[in-house]
Computed example of a mutant assay.
Amino acid sequence: MTRTVYLNGEFVAEQDAKVSVFDRGFLFADAVYEVSAVLNGRLLDNAAHLARLARSCQSLDLRLPCALGDIEILQNRLIAENNLHEGAVYLQISRGNSGDRDFDFPGENVSPTFLMFTQARPLIDHPKSKTGIRMVSVDDIRWQRRDIKTVGLLAPCLAKEYAHKHDADDALLVENGLITEASSSNAWIVDADGTLITRPLSTHILHGITRQALLELAKQNDLRFEERPFTLEEAQNAREIFISSATTFIWPVVSLNGKLIGDGKSGVMTGKLREIYVAMAVEATGGVGS
Rank of each mutant, 00 (worst) to 15 (best):
Y6A: 05
A13C: 07
D16E: 15
G25S: 04
D30N: 01
E34D: 15
S36Q: 11
N40R: 06
R52F: 01
R52H: 09
S59I: 08
L62N: 02
P65W: 09
A67T: 08
I71T: 14
R77N: 09
N82T: 06
L84Q: 10
Q92M: 14
R95D: 02
N97F: 04
S98M: 10
G99P: 00
D100W: 14
D100G: 15
D100I: 14
D102F: 10
P106D: 02
G107Q: 03
T113E: 05
F114K: 05
M116S: 09
M116Q: 07
F117I: 12
D125N: 15
K128P: 00
S129P: 03
V136A: 03
S137Q: 06
D140Y: 11
D140F: 08
V151P: 03
P156N: 01
K160N: 10
D169R: 07
L178T: 13
T180I: 09
S185M: 08
S185C: 13
W188L: 07
V190N: 02
A192T: 10
I209W: 00
E216L: 02
A218Q: 07
A218M: 09
D222F: 15
T231W: 05
E233D: 15
E234P: 00
A235P: 11
Q236C: 12
Q236S: 14
N237H: 13
E240Y: 00
I241L: 13
F242I: 04
I243E: 13
T247E: 02
T247L: 02
I250L: 12
L256R: 06
G258K: 09
G267N: 09
T270A: 06
G287F: 06
G289P: 13
